[in-house]
Amino acid sequence: MARNTMEAWIPEEWETSRVVQSITQISAVEALSARITMGSDTKHVPRTAGMDVAVVAKGGTYGEDTSLNDEVLLSAIKFGKAVRLAEEDIDDSVANVIEAKMIGWGKSYAKLIDNASLAVSAASNGTTVPFTSLYQLLNTTDATLSYTGGTNITTAASTGAPTYGEFSTAIGSVETGDYFDPGNMVAIAHPAFRKSLRGVVDGQSRPIFLQGTAGTPDTIFDVPIRWSLGAKLAATATSAPTGRPLMAFVNPELMLLGVRSGPESVFIDGRDGLSALTDESILKMRARRGWAYGHPNGASILVG
C-alpha cells in the first residue's frame, strides 16, 4: 500500500491487494462464505426450513407447504487497529513499512474473524463476542427449528487424538440431516488435527485423511479440508485462541458473511495537527463484517 497523506478511508482492491490475498489465504470464513452486501449496519437475510413436495394427480389440487419461513439478522461489527509510525521509519526504510503493517493486520484479522464466526463459546454481546458463532449456535436449543442444543457437537473423549468413531459420528450428524449437500460440504479445522489425522484408519486400515497435492486440497472422508488457525475454542473473540481445536463440517452456502466495508485504511500524516509535535504518523485499519450460519441442522462440530 503506497503512502497516502489524504485523511480518507482507502479500500483495498479485492483482486490485487496483497492484504486481501493474505486474508483469504488464512481465513476460511472470508474465503468460503456467501458474501452478503450490507448497505447499512443491519440486514435481514431470508432463511427457510425447506419446502416439501408431493405427487399431484391430474386435475388435482396442489397441497400447500407449511415449512417455516424466517430470517437471520446480520449486524455489522467493526474490527480495527491503529499503529503509530515514526517518519524516519517511513522515509528511511527500503521496505514498505506501511504495507508490512497492513499485511500483519490482515493476518491477525483473518484469524480473529474465523474465531469469532466459528469457535467462541459464549452468547453474542456485540463487542467481545461480536457474533453468534457456529459452536454457540450448535450448542443452543432452538425449538422453532426443531434443534436441540449439543445434538450436532461431538466431543473427543480422550485428551489424545480423536478416534475413527468420533470423526465418523461428527460428519454423520450432517449426513443424516435434510441440509446435507455432498457437492458443497467442507471441513474447516484447526491445523492441530493434521498430526492426529495421519494415524486414523478405518476397519480395513484405510486412512480417512488424504493429503492433497498441488492444486488439490487435503480431504477427510473425501470432504475437502480448509485449515484455520482461528478454529479453537475461546470465551471471547481473539486472533490467538488457546482452547480445544475444532473441526466443523459446513455447507458454505449457509455461511452468511455480511460485508459492510473494508478491508480499508486511512493514513493520518504526522505533520498535521497536534501529532506534528511527535514526528509520528498514524495508520488505521478496519473491516466491518456481519456473520450468521443459516441453520443449525446444516453443520456439525468435532471438538478435539
Rank of each mutant, 00 (worst) to 15 (best):
I103W: 07
K195Q: 08
I23K: 05
G270M: 03
G304K: 07
E99L: 13
A189M: 09
D92R: 13
P252A: 08
I225D: 05
E64N: 03
D91N: 03
T148G: 03
H190P: 12
G215S: 08
G172W: 07
T155K: 08
V94P: 11
F267N: 13
V83K: 13
R244H: 01
Y164K: 02
L137R: 06
N69L: 15
A237D: 14
A143C: 06
I23Q: 06
G304N: 03
G203E: 00
V55Y: 11
I208C: 10
D279R: 11
L274M: 03
L256D: 05
S108L: 04
W14A: 15
K78P: 04
N152T: 09
A156R: 06
F193A: 06
A57Q: 09
V259L: 13
K232M: 14
Q21E: 09
E30R: 01
S40H: 09
A110D: 08
Y62V: 13
D222S: 15
F131D: 10
K111G: 00
K78T: 13
G183F: 01
E280C: 03
D272S: 05
A116M: 08
S27H: 08
T42P: 12
L197V: 04
F193R: 07
I103E: 09
S265V: 12
G104K: 01
A86Q: 04
I98H: 00
K232V: 06
G50N: 10
T236P: 00
P182V: 12
E166K: 07
S281V: 04
W291T: 10
R198G: 05
Y62I: 14
A287K: 10
I10Q: 15
I36D: 09
D91P: 00
V55Q: 04
D70T: 15
G150L: 02
R286N: 10
G304M: 12
A82D: 12
I26A: 10
G177N: 05
I301H: 02
T66L: 02
I171L: 04
D52K: 13
N4L: 12
D52R: 08
D218G: 04
S196A: 11
R194H: 01
P224G: 09
A240C: 00
F131P: 07
R194E: 13
A161Y: 00
G172E: 06
T148R: 08
A49D: 14
K78E: 15
P11A: 02
M285R: 02
L118V: 03
Y62N: 14
G177V: 06
I268P: 07
D65L: 07
G39I: 03
N139K: 05
R289L: 11
G258K: 09
V120K: 08
G230C: 06
K58P: 14
I153G: 12
E88G: 05
M102C: 15
L257T: 05
A2R: 12
D92H: 09
E87K: 08
P130R: 03
M6E: 15
P191E: 05
K43Y: 00
V94N: 14
G243H: 07
